[in-house]
Nucleic acid binder design. Structure first.
Lengths: 339, 339
DNA sequence: AGATCAATGTTAATCGATTAAACAAATTGA
DNA sequence: TCAATTTGTTTAATCGATTAACATTGATCT
C-alpha cells in the first residue's frame, strides 16, 4: 500500500536523471546497454508501473480507442466487439466500450465523454437517424473514425461493413430460382444504412425479376418482432410464398409463430434469415440464411482504425465483406441443402 | 482543426485566472453567479472539452473502470457487460473492456495494462485456474475490486454472482420429485468457482436424496460440447433418466444430438439447462431451465464497485442472486408447465 | 474607528512522463 | 594535435487541470 513508484524514484535509486530512466524503459538507443539493464532491474524490483495518464499529457496519445455500439447486449454486437478487441490487443490498445442504446442523445453525450478521455480514435456504429452533420462534427474534432456496420456517408471516411444489399439479392435470386413469385421482406423498423441497404437489395431484385416489390412488412429486429409480424405477413395479398427476414432472430420468431399457426415452413412458405447464428442450423426446420461474420467485421474495423492512426493521410477505405448464402430446409427441398 | 481550447484560453478570454475557470466549470461555490455563467458561455462558444488526462494527473481519479471478462463473444457475457454499463453510465464512468479469453497470461498482462491506465477500480471475472495469490496481488495494488460470477476467495473482497449451487439443487429436487432416480450432470470442463458450485450442488443433492452421485460427464460449456457428450451420457450405467446441464447451450446441443438418435426428450430422458436463454422457450421440446439474470448480475457488480469507490472502508459485500426454476416440456409433463 | 467576516479571486506549486537542446566525455579523422 | 564526431546523459520546459494558501474588497459589528 506504499506510494506507487515513479520515474523519479527509479532515477534516484539508479543515480541518474528521470530523462535517462524514461528513455531506458522505452528502449531508446541513446542509452547504453548497462544503464538500461540496471534501470530495468530496479524498475522490476520496485514494481514500477507506467503512468499512461502522465504520458498522455505530454505525448497526446492515450493508446485507447472509443468503441460505440448501439446495443451491447445483442450477441451479434458481442461478436463484433470481440473482433475489434482481437485487432486492438496486438497493438497494445484498449477499447473504451460504450452503449448508445439507439439513442442520439446518449450517442452525443458518450462521444463527448470519449473526447474528454482523449481516445486516439473512434469505431462507431451510429445510432439510427444519425446523419452527415455528425460526420462533419467528428471530422472537425480531428478524431480518426471508422464507421462500422452502418455509415453516415457512403463515400466519406473509413467504413467497414457487410454487403447487406448483395446478401438480400442472393437470397432473392435463390428463392426466384426455386419458383417463388410472391416474395416478401420482413424488415427492421429502424432507419439506418444497414437497413436501407437490405431494402434496396430487395426492391432491386424484385424489379429485376419483374415481381411486385411492395411486399414489405416492417418490424423490430427481434425474435419478438418476428413472432408478432406473422399475421401481417399472412394478410398480404397475394399471400407470399416466401419471406426474407431482416435477420435470423426475426426469422426464428416468425417460424415459431407460423409453426404455431399450423403452417408448413419450407413447403407452404419459405423463410430466409440473415446472420447464420448458431441456432439457425438447429431450428425446425433448419434455417436458410446468409452467413454474416460479425467477428471478422469487428476485426477489420479495428485494423482499419489502426491503419488510419498510423497514417492519417491515407485515402479512405471501404471494406465490405460479402455474406454467404447457406441453404437449409426452411426453403424446402428445391436446392442443394447443407445439413 | 484548430488547437483544442484549454482552461487557459478561456481564462484569457474572460480576463480571469485558470483557477477561476476550473472552479466555475465544476460549479464550485466560491465563484459568483455572473462570472460562472460568463465563463460557461465562453467555454460553450469556443468548444471547450474537459481534459480528463490532465485532471487525472492531479486528482488521481480517471473515472474509468477496468472490466475483464473471460469471453466477450459469449452472449451471456454480453448481457453481463451491458448490465455493468447500465450501472456505470449513471455515474459518468466508462468501462475499459478487455477479453482475457480464459488465459492467465493474458489476464496478467491486461491487468497491468489497466493499471497503467489508472483505472479507478476493477470488475473481474477471473479466468479458470486463478487463485488467491491474484487476489493478494490486486489488493496490494490498492485497487478496488469486485469479483464477478467467479471468485478468487469465497470470503474476501466484494463478490457478485449467481447462486449456482442453489440452482442446481432446485433442478435436482424437481427431477427427484418427478420420480427420477438416475440423474446425471453434464458439466463444464473448466476449473473455476462457478463450475465447482454447480457440481457441489449436484453432489449434495444426490446425497440428500440417497442417490448415486458419480454420474458426472464433463464437457465444454458450448453447444458443440453438448452435442458431443450425448454418447458418453447414454453409455452410463445405469442409464440416466434425467440430466442437468452446465448451461442452456450444452442442453440445447445435447437435445439436438438425442433427437437425432431418436430418443424422446421429456419421456425417455429429461433435460434441464441453466440460464434461460431466449431460445430455451422455443426449442423442441421447450427447455426446462434456471433463469439466471446476467444483466442484473452485471448491474449489481457495477453498483457494488461504485459503492466500494465511494467508501473504500465499507465491509466486503457478497451479492448472490438466486436463479429461478422454469419448468417446461423437456422434463415431461409431471409438473406445472410454463409454456 | 478599528476589528471581523464573507464573498470572490489569484498565485504558484503540483501531478509524472517526455523531449528538445545543451553538455561532457570519449573516439575518430586529417 | 586539434577539430569533428559520436555516445551517453542531464537540464529544464512542457502538457492541462487542480488546490492549498494567500489577497482583495466591501460590508457589518462593536
Amino acid at each position: 500500500m506504499t506510494e506507487r513508484p515513479t520515474l523519479a524514484h527509479i532515477a534516484a535509486e539508479a543515480g541518474v536523471s528521470t530523462a535517462t530512466v524514461s528513455m531506458a524503459l522505452r528502449g531508446h538507443t541513446r542509452i547504453s546497454r548497462q544503464t538500461r539493464s540496471r534501470i530495468c532491474q530496479i524498475a522490476e524490483r520496485v514494481g514500477y508501473v507506467y503512468d499512461r495518464g502522465a504520458a498522455l499529457l505530454r505525448t497526446g496519445r492515450s493508446e485507447t480507442v472509443g468503441l460505440l455500439v448501439s446495443d451491447i447486449a445483442n450477441p451479434f454486437f458481442a461478436e463484433l466487439v470481440a473482433g475489434v478487441d482481437d485487432a486492438l490487443e496486438g497493438a497494445g490498445k484498449v477499447a473504451l466500450l460504450v452503449n448508445t442504446r439507439e439513442s442520439p442523445e446518449r450517442q452525443k453525450a458518450l462521444l463527448r465523454r470519449l473526447r474528454e478521455q482523449s481516445v486516439d480514435g473512434l469505431i462507431l456504429c451510429p445510432v439510427a437517424e444519425s446523419d452527415l452533420r455528425l460526420l462533419d462534427e467528428i471530422q472537425s474534432w480531428g478524431l480518426p473514425l471508422v464507421q462500422m456496420l452502418r455509415h453516415l456517408s457512403p463515400t466519406r471516411g473509413d467504413y467497414v461493413s457487410l454487403d447487406y444489399r448483395m446478401g438480400v439479392e442472393a437470397a432473392f435470386d435463390h428463392l426466384a430460382r426455386l419458383g417463388h413469385r410472391h416474395i416478401a421482406f420482413a424488415g427492421g423498423a429502424l432507419r439506418h444504412s444497414a437497413s436501407a441497404q437490405r431494402l434496396a437489395g430487395f426492391r432491386a431484385s424484385a424489379r429485376r425479376h419483374g415481381l411486385v416489390s411492395g411486399m414489405v412488412v416492417p418490424c423490430p429486429a427481434t425474435r419478438q418482432g418476428g413472432r408478432e409480424t406473422a399475421p401481417a405477413l399472412l394478410a398480404l395479398s397475394p399471400r407470399p410464398t416466401a419471406v426474407i427476414c431482416f435477420n435470423d432472430l426475426v426469422a426464428l420468431g416468425l417460424m415459431a409463430s407460423l409453426r404455431k399457426a399450423g403452417i408448413a415452413i419450407g413447403s407452404e412458405i419459405a423463410v430466409v434469415g440473415f446472420d447464420n447464428v448458431e441456432e439457425a442450423a438447429e431450428s425446425d426446420p433448419a434455417l436458410t440464411t446468409l452467413a454474416s461474420t460479425p467477428r471478422a467485421v469487428g476485426k477489420e474495423a479495428g485494423q482499419a482504425l489502426l491503419r488510419r492512426l498510423a497514417d492519417p493521410e491515407r485515402p479512405p477505405e471501404r471494406i465490405v465483406l460479402p455474406p454467404r448464402l447457406i441453404v437449409r430446409r426452411s426453403c424446402g427441398f428445391g436446392g442443394a441443402v447443407v445439413p
